[in-house]
């Protein structure tokens, strides 16, 4: 990445991050009516994205993205391929380094942090990948345990109990000792979710979690996510193409295109009465 920095396109100037209280009150005003999630005056957004820009070489893939996510809110990000939605997600746990702008988690600026601080941040931001990315040399249970023992420094028994609990929660208690290669894609993705949840992150990011699955396996994964959204109170940001899931589960739907948040709002609003013609066009093409 440093190598790429050297060939970076012109530096984008953005204003400094707003003070926390000011940002919170602005967000409180701005997000009224955009989400079905209940948030209160004086409450601070858990994730705050201000003027986020990201470019790969000379291509700007995120252009001045602004977004707030409230604690416990379920945000679904929609948009055509290449719209920058995955990149935004990856910026939130710094798998990509923002080119400009601010990402704050619990009012803590995460850009320009040291490697150690980044690792600390990441344990609070879980991620579920399109390709599952389970560790193939470990069993399902060990996959769920390893973050707890290595990063949270839990003792083995405690981590194992947690792992079994989370595997049970995703319906895979009987697959605890299976290696990923012995599991179906859907099962693997559910293990991956258990792995992320076992870290008890503040925010859980889903990067197209069902895109790599055979159609008949998608539902099991979505059920797990729905259950998480409805019963765990976990803050979730989900990038997906599953419109049904977005409509049923999301507190808020964000539509992105070409690196820009085009439209956001309540699912029924965005799906049924899109304001932006691009949104309408996209949803039309999907439906």
């Amino acid at each position: 990445m440093p190598a790429k920095l050297r060939h970076r396109a012109p530096v984008i100037e953005v204003p400094p991050a707003l003070p926390a209280d000011e940002a919170a009150s602005i967000a409180y005003e701005a997000d009224q009516g955009l989400t079905s999630h209940h948030f209160t005056p004086g409450e601070h957004p858990i994730v705050r994205i201000e003027h986020l820009n990201k470019s790969f070489d000379d291509t700007l893939v995120l252009k001045d993205v602004n977004l707030n996510v409230w604690p416990g809110e379920v945000v679904v990000v929609l948009g055509p391929s290449g719209s920058g939605k995955s990149t935004m997600l990856r910026c939130i746990n710094l798998l990509e380094t923002p080119s400009a702008g601010h990402i704050l988690i619990e009012d803590d600026e995460i850009t320009n942090k040291s490697a150690a601080e980044v690792n600390k941040l990441r344990r609070d931001v879980g991620m579920v990948f399109q390709q599952f990315n389970l560790f193939p040399h470990l069993t399902a249970k060990e996959n769920v345990m390893i973050g707890q023992t290595k990063v949270l420094k839990k003792d083995k028994a405690e981590a194992e109990a947690e792992a079994l609990k989370q595997l049970a929660a995703v319906g895979l208690a009987d697959r605890a000792d299976f290696k990923p290669a012995q599991l179906s894609g859907g099962q693997q993705q559910r293990v991956a979710i258990a792995r992320a949840v076992a870290m008890h992150p503040n925010v859980l990011l889903f990067d197209e979690p069902t895109s790599a699955l055979d159609p008949e396996l998608v539902r099991g994964v979505l059920d797990v996510m729905r259950d998480l959204a409805e019963n765990s109170g976990m803050t979730m940001i989900v990038v997906t193409h599953e419109m049904g899931f977005a409509r049923d589960v999301a507190d808020r739907v964000v539509f992105m295109e070409d690196g820009v948040v085009v439209e956001q709002g309540l699912p029924e609003k965005v799906f049924d009465h899109p304001e932006n013609p691009r949104t309408a066009e996209f949803l039309g093409s999907i439906n």
Binding site: L95, N119, N133, F135, P136, G147
Partner: peptide, 29 residues
């Protein structure tokens, strides 16, 4: 695959942990 590094990172593992618990055991095989 890069995804293995990313998965380890997303759990908060540092470079040494990632190498010794995730990457090298797979490399060995």
């Amino acid at each position: 695959p890069q995804g293995q590094y990313e998965a380890a990172s997303s759990l908060g593992m540092n470079y040494v942990q990632t190498m010794f618990t995730i990457i090298l055991p797979q490399t060995v095989r």
